[in-house]
Amino acid sequence: MDKTVNQKAWFLVLPVFLVVAFSAILPLMTVVNYSMQDTFGNNQFFWNGVGWFKELLDPSTDLGGRFFASLWRNLFFSAVILAIEVPLGIVVALSMPRQGWSVAACLVILALPLLIPWNVVGTIWQIFGRPDIGLLGYVLNNLGINYNYVSNEFDAWATVIVMDVWHWTSLVALLCYAGLKSIPDAYYQAAQIDGASRWAVFTAIQLPKMHRVLLIAVLLRFMDSFMIYTEPFVVTGGGPGNSTTFISIELVKIALGQFDLGKAAALSLVYNLIIIIVCWVFYTVMTNAGAERRPNQGVA
């Protein structure tokens, strides 16, 4: 729909434009600038061209090796949490009540984890999982399960994944619940009358109608999980070894630990690009799958 043009409206957008310029565009240009240079401190910079990028994309170098290792870890992590959180979120949404006072109670309980800041979530789980004083770690070890996220890679991964599922499944569930609520009662009544099984109701009505919100949920969860930093940093610090060092943690190590601004800048640009590309792929695939189902009503 093209609306009638009102030039004055541009003035109203101007402040936002300025804020975005200062908060996003200028820093981004600075990063681009850094990525082409090398520095040894003292604010002295040397031109390096695409050197950092070459090194970054070559797995045989130290930088490249660290980058690809953390990239695979990141992709694996996102795949696992999507594979858990999306189906789990759908199940939670499906099992929520549709009316009555319990709706409000369920919504509040679901929203609680979402309200807790990242570093607090990390701290909670860090203590919760400790074998000496944490409830979880203590109980597991007393049950004879040798659980220690500080020394055992598998335990560290499991902790980070369970923590993310605990923190974010609510979001998927809430989105799915909103999608489910928008289905008119007549559909459920019709399905009952048509003798549809619970599974048939899910595949024929609920899943197709949730398609749009699921797209949003997958995008949000992918972006968030791919950029995850605080929680694993607080809980495992990227360890044991480098086993839970994700790209963002690697990035901080390079930028602040080693003060390799050029390398870090190049890494963050590539990181950014990967997120954009993967999101674009997700979006295209999921909307194309939906486009086929969209009604095609011309002027008739």
Binding site: Y187, A204, P208
Partner: peptide, 23 residues
């Protein structure tokens, strides 16, 4: 019902067959 209830992912034929198939 008052407004059409259609199973989105199915063809017209599958929609018509649905109540029979379920039984």
């Amino acid at each position: 019902f008052q407004f059409p209830v259609i199973y989105d992912t199915m063809t017209v034929g599958q929609n018509l067959a649905f109540p029979l198939k379920n039984r």
